[in-house]
Amino acid sequence: MVKITIDGRPIEVTESTTILQAAKLLNISIPTLCHHPKLTPFGGCRLCIVEVKGMPKPVTACTTTVSNGMEVTTYSPYLEELRKTVLELILSDHPNDCMVCEQAGSCKLQDLAYDYGIRENRYEGERRIYPNRDGNPFIERDLEKCILCGRCVKVCDEVQGVEAIDFGYRGFRSKICTNYEEDLECEFCGQCVSVCPTGALTGKQWKKKGRKGGQVEVETTCPYCGTGCNITAHVKENEILKITSKEQTWNEGWLCVKGRFGYRFVQSPERLKRPLIKRNGKFEEASWDEALDHVARRLSEIKEKHGADSIGGLSSARCTNEENYAFQKLIRAGIGTNNVDHCARL
């Protein structure tokens, strides 16, 4: 354990702790852009710079580990001026089109520009202009909004193990590249979308579906495989606009392509909307009373004629516990047979 002070407040932490982590323990917030708690530190954006007594220049809090007796200052007019300059430089090469950006309201860069009151920019100059021409159906990549924080590169490698993207070129021409700069070809888990701090990576599905305002967030469980990831459905006017997952869930906010992008079946025009009864080989719409009476009558007839064991029920691994409980109870107690099963074997 080592003892340090941050802004004059003492704390004792383990040796491998970074200044940023130690500050968090003291509830001192240091501005960051490229840092993500689930990814390895990068030190790319230089916003988290702090002063350490005895060191000639400010250091990045996310990559510097503590050492005994360290005295750290996180806020000073000098540091704030440097941070503002860093932001101005980032914004000098950014479209600044927040009025039409999907991420407005949930953009870390926008929040920081707001915090530092940046409207005029001292560093206006050349901007990187990239055409958008990615044919994949899931992820919108707007490289002009990319601030090269590298979170997407890290999550794709460290968490997903796919390495579909990486930094390419040098200096002003640096950009996040796919293999041979072709269309994005990957698992489309969208982990990169979830960690992107700006509007550079968004879901094509929720384009123009509305921004943060007016949405209700519903915490629920993914309907696909048995992993049971916790998901958040963003809902507006009875429509699911997008699915996300929060960082503090047990699945750490990670999802797969089905969980993140596979929800539009809910609004499919092919959904069944009314009960159907087949007459002379053709389905006809029926009222609920008609359909339910029909089912009950047919089941009763067959039970009377052939016995309860001539009836069987197949329940669903897609349905809830409550529904499955009720289903087998209906078959066992309501009809009187143990002929009940579900698709566990398939």
């Binding site: 519903v218 915490e219 629920t220 459905a233 809902v235 959904r271 909307k273 289903f327």
Partner: peptide, 25 residues
């Protein structure tokens, strides 16, 4: 599992359907 949107048309949740059939039996 939490309700986020209403079912389309006259579609009903399974629990309601099961209890209605059961009642009729």
């Amino acid at each position: 599992v939490r309700k986020a949107v209403n079912p389309p048309g006259e579609a009903k949740d399974d629990l309601w359907i099961l209890s209605e059939i059961s009642r009729r039996l």
